Simulated scan of single mutants.
Amino acid sequence: MSLKRLGVIGCGGIADVVLTTLAKEIATPLAQVSLLVPTQFVGQARALLDRLGDKLAVSRSSHTDVASLLADNPDAVAECASHVAVHDYGPAILEAGRDLIVISIGSLSDEALYTRLAQAATTGGARLVLPAGALGGIDALSAARLSGLESVVYTGRKPPKAWKGTPAEKLLALDTIKEPVVFFEGSARMAATVYPFNANVAATLAIAGIGLDSTQVRLVADPGIERNVHEFAVRSACGDFAVKLEGRPSPANPKTSLLAGYSVARELINRAGGSVVI
């Protein structure tokens, strides 16, 4: 596994973190970095690539269709955009034999899409890669699954402003609540479906662990915090454990934890370097 030519879907906050970190951390520039964005964001994509320049890659380009991105022959493509991007571009990328690194993991709560991506990966001889994103402890959860999982319960706490633009607005007066309020309890599949831009972590836990329908989720609007707090508790045949992580929100999007971008960057740095940290 090596990385000389990289494709990235998106040019927003996560993509910025990923590419800026790569430019800083890799020993030698990549040969090519190609961005796939909607037409209205081509200027923003070019500005990002121009800012990072030769520290990032010898050659840099932006595209508005997946065929032209693939024509640049990326070794891997990192999705840093949205659930829609996974649906629209993921199968074609995998069928072309390119590994696809997905950060919008909540999109995989759609069983039909997940199956389609898995089939495309088999057809193309590629891998669908799911980084840990905003969570820690995924390695322990995946290992515990091999012993047999009894329960996985996730609690997501975010400031009220992080829930704006979601169905929580119809349930709560987000600008005036004074105490923490649990406004959702249900399965990870339901959480990722109803709150797709906030519950990617629930889907990550579920896929790594006991499944989308058996992983339990609680979502909380908490006016007493300024960071995104992710907690999960696991009971398994090999042991019980709990993980808590207080992530700083992305400056570009408070619904997203800043750590998500660094998680993708770590995956790419592992590919570009001579050693791998897991």
Rank of each mutant, 00 (worst) to 15 (best):
Leu52Tyr: 00
Ala31Cys: 09
Ser34Ala: 15
Tyr154Ala: 07
Ser82Ile: 02
Gln32Trp: 11
Pro160Gln: 09
Tyr114Cys: 05
Asp50Arg: 05
Val102Arg: 11
Thr166Gly: 10
Ala67Met: 08
Pro38Trp: 10
Thr123Trp: 03
Tyr154Val: 05
Tyr114Ile: 00
Ala78Met: 10
Ala120Pro: 00
Leu128Ile: 01
Gln119Trp: 03
Leu69Arg: 06
Gly148Ala: 09
Arg60Ala: 06
Leu113Glu: 00
Leu149Cys: 03
Gly133Phe: 01
Leu128Ala: 05
Phe41Met: 01
Leu94Ala: 10
Ile26Asn: 05
Gly125Phe: 01
Leu69Phe: 04
Leu117Pro: 02
Thr155Asn: 07
Gly90Lys: 10
Ile138Gly: 10
Gly43Asn: 06
Leu100Thr: 07
Lys158His: 12
Ser104Leu: 00
Asp65Thr: 15
Ile138Ser: 12
Asn73Met: 11
Thr122Lys: 14
Asp110Arg: 12
Val66Tyr: 09
Ser68Arg: 14
Gly165Tyr: 02
Arg51Gly: 11
His87Gly: 00
Arg145Gly: 12
Ala76Met: 10
Ile101Lys: 11
Val58Ala: 15
Arg145Met: 04
Leu100Phe: 15
Gln44Thr: 13
Asp72Thr: 15
Ala76Gly: 08
Gly106Glu: 08
Lys164Cys: 08
Ala126Phe: 04
Ser82His: 06
Gly137Tyr: 02
Thr115His: 06
Gln119Lys: 13
Pro131Leu: 11
Leu108Val: 01
Ser34Gly: 13
Val86Phe: 09
Val58Glu: 14
Val37Gly: 03
Pro74Val: 07
Lys55Asp: 13
Val77Ala: 11
Lys24Ser: 14
Ala112Gln: 15
Thr20Trp: 07
Tyr89Ala: 08
Gly156Pro: 05
Ala31Asp: 15
Ser61Glu: 12
His87Cys: 00
Ile101Glu: 11
Ser147Thr: 11
Ser59Gln: 14
Arg46His: 12
Ala132Met: 13
Gly125Pro: 08
Val153Cys: 12
Val129Arg: 15
Ala31Trp: 08
Asp75Val: 05
Thr115Glu: 12
Leu36His: 07
Val33Thr: 13
Arg60Phe: 03
Gly106Phe: 00
Val84Asn: 11
Ser61Leu: 07
Lys158Tyr: 08
Thr166Ala: 10
Thr122Ser: 13
Pro74Trp: 09
Ala92Ile: 07
Leu117Lys: 06
Leu56Pro: 10
Pro131Cys: 09
Leu36Gln: 06
Ser59Thr: 14
Ala96Gly: 04
His87Ala: 13
Arg51Ser: 12
Ala31Thr: 15
Phe41His: 12
Val37Trp: 09
Ile93Ser: 08
Leu69Thr: 06
Leu69His: 07
Val42Ile: 11
Gly133Tyr: 06
Asp54Ser: 14
Asp139Cys: 03
Gly156Cys: 10
Lys24Ile: 08
Ser109Asn: 13
Gln119Tyr: 04
Pro159Phe: 00
Val129Gly: 06
Ala67Pro: 02
Leu52Ser: 02
Asn73Val: 14
His87Asp: 04
Asp72Trp: 01
Ala76Leu: 10
Leu94Gly: 06
Leu130Val: 01
Arg145Cys: 02
Thr155Ile: 05
Lys158Asn: 08
Tyr154Ile: 05
His63Val: 01
Ile103Cys: 15
Thr123His: 13
Ala76Asn: 05
